[in-house]
Design a binder for these strands. Structure first.
Lengths: 213, 213
DNA sequence: TAGATTGTTAATCGATTAACAATC
DNA sequence: TAGATTGTTAATCGATTAACAATC
């Protein structure tokens, strides 16, 4: 489906396309030109056509793009039309919020287990799932074979936990912990790091340099 | 301090520099060359020197960079050595997690108020603050004059709430709501949007295209 | 057919990397 | 002083924008 090695600049824009197309679909808009979409999203029409043509010709000359068709195509490109079995480690404030706030099934993941080492949290129901004790991890993974782990754990346990999970067959991490998983040590491990605080520091920069814009 | 118009590619790397320098400081490492830092961070030495020289010459030929000095300089560049009065709107799962998980005072913000419209949440203590009813917002802002708002609210109320806050003098938003604040309508308003789910979709893309790497 | 808009090639712009003189 | 490493200029690479022929 995808042509070889699409640049990460393009990939990073795909979820944004997807969001805007969803919005258009909700407004019952059926077609849109690259020009109109560009104005809406703050891109150039050129860029939109270039981006989409990395994956195929989804438009039609003289017409533009069919909104719901393009929406579906992008879902396919992102792979969110398939579901990966996913577990979440750490049911503290952040884990709880991620589990209940993110619509995993709309983003290519199926959340099937939540784990914590705090006995007070175990047994609680979050996002419809019973929080399990971390000691159950091995048994659970052998039985269900999840592919993805969401890490909402402190930095101090990041290294041990990620290695434990890799040994259990997990190969993709959505990592909210401040521990940086070294992919160099583990070939074929996929990591998407989320550094929330980085974005707050960038806000701070913008505040302190606003006269420039 | 800062030279004119540093590119956003550079700005986005600053928090990462800051994190790695903190780590080095914690390990009591006092000096580092651009070469060593590059290996650690996965950058090129050239890029590090270029990036830092956008803001001034912080190194010394033949020696390298002083870790704690550089750490402080980057804090100054980011403006996180000063604190902006900050309020958080929406004390649901996500708001609670953001309030308690983020070290605001280390990132240039001082969290001084949390608001929600749910009577059950009002009165709760989160991150040492009493959650106030949203009806108190005007009184509170007139008294304390906050500059920054963290939005942890549903998309549906994003538009109204952001306008209400702009009218109360808020000019910077850390926006977790799915509503995109249009800065075009409001000059001098600074927005940093966080789309958590985008990052999960990119993970999904990487999983589904992993043979390429 | 004529008008509109894509897909794609070429031109431009900006960011990254390489090289090296300056200097600690 | 000699060695090391920066600060900075020049070269390369990649991403964005412009232009236009293809085509619906």
């Amino acid at each position: 489906m995808a042509k070889n090695q699409v640049s990460s600049s393009v990939i990073k824009r795909l979820p944004r396309y997807y969001r805007f197309l969803e919005e258009l679909k909700n407004q019952n808009i059926t077609r849109i030109s690259s020009q109109e979409l560009a104005e809406l999203m703050g891109f150039t029409a050129s860029q939109i056509r270039q981006d989409l043509n990395c994956f195929g010709g989804f438009g039609q000359q003289g017409y533009g793009y069919n909104v719901s068709q393009l929406y579906m195509e992008i879902a396919k490109i992102l792979g969110i039309d398939k579901l990966q079995k996913t577990i979440l480690i750490g049911a503290g404030n952040l884990g709880k919020a991620v589990a209940s706030h993110i619509e995993f099934e709309k983003k290519g993941c199926q959340l099937i287990g939540i784990f914590d080492n705090n006995p007070e949290l175990c047994g609680q129901i979050i996002a419809g799932l019973n929080v399990l004790d971390i000691s159950q991890l091995e048994k659970f993974c052998h039985k269900h074979n999840p592919a993805v782990a969401v890490l909402c754990i402190p930095k101090s346990v990041g290294k041990d936990m990620s290695e434990r999970l890799i040994n259990l067959g997990i190969y993709a991490f959505w990592n909210f912990s401040h521990y940086d998983i070294k992919t160099s040590n583990h070939k074929n491990i996929i990591v998407e790091n989320v550094h929330l605080a980085d974005s707050l520091m960038i806000l701070s920069y913008k505040i302190n340099n606003k006269e420039q814009s």
